[in-house]
Design a protein around this nucleic acid. Structure first.
Lengths: 207, 207
DNA sequence: ATCAAATCAATGTGATCGCATCGTTATGAC
DNA sequence: GTCATAACGATGCGATCACATTGATTTGAT
């Protein structure tokens, strides 16, 4: 129907995303504690009043930014896989999803910095924690499906429980990702380890 | 010589540790952003002036708390292993060091919450980041020594590069630890996965 | 005993924060 | 056209923060 329901402009969702993106940029650069109405408004190139209008409470602003980050991440994965990861070739999908977790370009680096800030916030903010748990539940479930399909396709002999293998892969990838982020591991090394772990799931011997 | 160099009491280091511990308690409970002079003073049971006296700048207070957390962690590991981990039976030391990373009692849970807060801070605070890198360098080096000794002792056939294996083990353990912390993985499951990974390093087939 | 330095508490200060409030403007419904 | 209302900008307010300042007190050294 109407693209604009009310008021001037009224590209409501668009504006919200623009502001949420500004929050993410600040978080990536200087952390969550640097997020304030003034800071966000300046970064987004809008008035502080507008920020407050779209997000009456700071809590909502932060949560919107978190959701926005997840949406961006999901979109990026889908773009790289070329569709729904669950219907893509399982091994390729596994490789993309897991290697995208480790920072290797500005975009992934920024995303992981943001994510790391929110993981800390989740420890003292139940609203974020709930979203985080839901996000991980979906993530691990999706990974488990991929692992199972990969096992079925390959010549996996015994076959580890898909769910367990999925969690193991994710944990390894996330741990390595943080090491890369703080600069104690090279992106290439992390990637190699992840590929080896994926090969292991396929019944091949890891390097 | 003199335990007290100057002034009343002058149990300088002791007081600093007491205040640093208060900081850690606050971080564990409500996160880094809840740390303020007033809050710390109240938690430590001292005047706000004293906090300021021992830590003229907040930056120093935070860094002292970080160092304190590391010292506590090191002491706990040594206590559990019963001496220097590097001279203990390698497989036992590996098991202790890695399984202690995942939260399974109030102490380890608190420690990991604190650690998680600091990992986020390290992304926007170079002083903390430097300390963090140094800490990990030592941690991974120590793990690598243990892995090498474990490989020598066991019947490991080929033998993965000890350094690579060490990083892999640590990454897996830390990833699992965070999953446990936010409640999407059970402590027992995480422990099992870690034990399996250690067995793998020893040349045994993982479960 | 005296003194200098360390310790400590109390108060002040400027800045910043989240949020409330108020007034103006722009827009769509009628 | 008019009217209700969303959109928006600007300003105000109370709270809190890190840090500075001040002054009193306690100790060890001499």
């Amino acid at each position: 129907m109407n693209r604009r329901t009310r008021g001037p402009g009224a590209r409501h969702e668009e504006r919200r995303e623009q502001i949420a993106d500004a929050v993410l940029a600040i978080v990536a650069g200087r952390g969550l504690q640097a997020v304030s109405q003034t800071e966000v408004a300046a970064r987004a190139g809008v008035s502080a009043g507008r920020v407050q209008h779209y997000f009456p409470a700071k809590k909502e602003l932060i949560e919107a930014a978190f959701d926005r980050a997840n949406a961006r991440s999901t979109a990026r994965i889908r773009r790289l896989v070329g569709g729904d990861p669950l219907t893509a070739p399982p091994r390729e999908a596994l490789t993309v999803v897991l290697t995208q977790l480790v920072p290797h370009d500005p975009e992934t680096r920024t995303h992981l910095r943001v994510r790391q800030s929110f993981t800390a916030l989740a420890l003292s903010d139940e609203a974020i924690a709930g979203r985080m748990r839901a996000r991980y539940a979906e993530f691990h479930r999706e990974l488990a499906v991929l692992v199972r399909r990969a096992q079925d396709a390959g010549a996996a002999p015994a076959g580890l429980d898909p769910r367990t293998a999925a969690v193991r892969l994710a944990a390894l990838a996330e741990g390595l990702a943080y090491y890369v982020l703080i600069g104690i591991t090279e992106p290439e090394d992390a990637r190699e380890q992840i590929l080896a772990a994926i090969a292991d799931v396929h019944g091949e011997r890891p390097a």
